[in-house]
């Protein structure tokens, strides 16, 4: 038995897959489910571009064995928007010009998503610490931190209205 039968829920949709046992969660997302919003880069948990949210926590999907995700919930950047309405994090990244080449952005946004879910009222310093594992080599972090702070504010306002 070298194939693993995997039951995985991604962005609310349940998938039943048969995958090679050595596949990472990143392999499954990109190659099996064709969710290529999650990027591939260092493959050794250095850069954070492959970050997705697994059961509410950010993980580097390149170093998570897919077979260990049996029955678990994954959120990727593709699942953030609701129809045409972007998530406040996505809106803020656009508004603050926090994106240049864009390669790190899906990972950056999912890192921020998991962080804000746990810390709805962050400080700038705690945001910087939260994204320390996700590298951007072009925009610089100032605008990214600005965007995450703005999104945090909008999300908490939305929460209060709801």
């Amino acid at each position: 038995m070298t194939e693993v039968q995997l039951d995985l829920t991604v962005n609310g949709r349940r998938h039943r897959l048969s995958i090679p046992a050595h596949y990472s969660l990143l392999d499954v997302l990109r190659d099996e489910l064709e969710l290529t919003g999650t990027k591939t880069n260092c493959l050794e948990a250095e850069c954070g571009v492959c970050t997705v949210v697994l059961d509410g926590k950010s993980v580097a999907s390149c170093t998570v064995l897919a077979a260990q995700c049996q029955g678990r919930q994954v959120a990727t950047v593709e699942g953030l928007a609701e129809g045409a309405a972007l998530h406040p994090l996505q809106e803020a990244f656009i508004e603050f010009g926090a994106v240049q080449c864009g390669y790190c952005i899906p990972g950056m946004i999912m890192t921020a998503k998991a962080f804000l879910d746990e810390n709805p009222r962050p400080t700038r310093e705690s945001v910087r610490e939260a994204i320390a594992g996700t590298l951007c080599r072009c925009t610089g972090y100032q605008k990214i931190v600005d965007a995450i702070m703005a999104a945090a504010q909008r999300l908490s306002q939305q929460g209060e209205r709801a």
Partner: peptide, 9 residues
């Protein structure tokens, strides 16, 4: 150790 992504796992 690592970043949040590694320490969570």
């Amino acid at each position: 150790i690592g970043g949040h992504q590694v320490r969570n796992v």
